[in-house]
């Protein structure tokens, strides 16, 4: 029975208990031969996703290994050099990583405070009617394809930045514009995940705070947000991972050509942007360029995977459970 209590924890697992009960009662013992066939097919469907993961790991790992055993390349150079110029044999991933970091930091810098404020507003302040109007708008924002955001960055955000800071300061392609627009892109993600976390905090906690004379702001910031912190943190991490992997916006607006710089108004190419630009051209298979893309892809995959696992771990570890 001890097993059962651990099972009940997550929503998905709750169903398992029902299924286990059916099992004990022998409710679906009766089976026809074709049914085993069907079940085998369904199992195969379930396993396809595992093969996808294995495929990703295999493909990225194999090509990246081919890249690293190439005489021109060393792992040390890959991880330490600040130059990425495949034409003359320089393969240091840092310029791509700094550009990725810059767009992501700008994006999260925009999306994090605004997204959290939106979530607090929707869950603590807004009337049901206002929520009914605002939430679909945010959902529309989340459903716009990223290539459209890229267009938006190039034709709206960049000219805006250039008119504010001066055309000499801001280049036509720059990471600031791309980062700001990625921020708009991940804003709905942050706000809706955070709002879910805030809404899961039971009413009784809020009422206790009001009963002690707290204002609405104090209740929201000192009671509700701390209680939902694990969910909010998870939302932030997922948003960071999304910003890291975002491709089209940076491919269109951030610039072509790796550039080791920390100036957000200069052009620089991110990891994803580089992959898209090189693979979009005439790329011959089994060349060093081709293999180098997979090495970058592997780094990108590992970073985003680590972030996603971290976010799941936080939810599992630090979630406050209220009955």
């Amino acid at each position: 029975m001890q097993g059962d209590t651990t099972i009940i924890k997550s929503g998905w697992m709750k169903q398992r208990v029902g299924a286990a009960l059916d099992d004990q009662l022998g409710l679906h013992r009766k089976r026809r031969p074709t049914e085993s066939l069907i079940q085998a097919f369904l199992f195969f469907c379930g396993v396809v996703s595992v093969f996808t993961t294995l495929g990703i790991v295999f493909v990225l790992g194999r090509e990246a290994m081919l890249f690293f055993i190439h005489p021109e390349v060393t792992l040390v150079e890959f991880l330490t050099s600040t130059k990425w110029q495949p034409a003359i044999g320089d393969f240091g991933i840092w310029p791509l990583v700094t550009a990725t970091f810059m767009t992501s930091v700008i994006a999260v810098g925009v999306a994090l405070p605004i997204g959290l404020a939106v979530a607090v507003y929707l869950s603590e302040y807004a009337s049901p009617r206002a929520r009914g109007i605002l939430k679909p708008i945010l959902e529309v924002l989340a459903g716009v394809p990223t290539v459209v955001y890229g267009y938006f960055a190039l034709t709206f955000m960049t000219p805006l930045l250039r008119s504010i800071f001066g055309e000499n300061v801001v280049e036509i392609y720059n990471t600031a514009s791309a980062g700001l627009v990625i921020g708009i892109l991940i804003l709905p993600l942050v706000s809706s995940m955070s709002e879910d976390a805030l809404s899961a905090v039971p009413r009784s906690l809020r009422e206790a705070a009001y009963g002690l004379g707290a204002t609405r702001l104090e209740t929201a910031l000192k009671v509700v947000v701390p209680a939902a912190l694990s969910g909010i943190t998870a939302a932030f991490i997922v948003a960071v991972s999304r910003a890291f992997g975002e491709t089209m916006i940076v491919a269109i607006a951030a610039g072509a050509g790796p550039n080791f710089t920390l100036n957000p108004f200069k052009a620089a190419e991110t990891m994803t942007g580089h992959i898209v630009r090189i693979s979009g051209g005439d790329l011959s298979y089994d060349s060093l360029d081709y293999d180098s893309l997979f090495a970058i892809g592997l780094v990108l995959f590992l970073i985003t995977l680590a972030l996603n696992l971290l976010s799941q771990q936080i939810v599992r570890r630090f979630r406050e459970v209220y009955e």
Binding site: S49, T52, T53, I56, V59, L60, V238, S241, R242, F244, G245, E246, T247, T272, I275, V276, S279, L293, F294, G297, L300, F301, T304, L305, L307, N308, L309
Partner: peptide, 12 residues
């Protein structure tokens, strides 16, 4: 986890 993998990785 697959739902969180960047789409460009699927391209590769």
């Amino acid at each position: 986890n697959l739902a969180g993998v960047p789409s460009i990785i699927y391209g590769m």
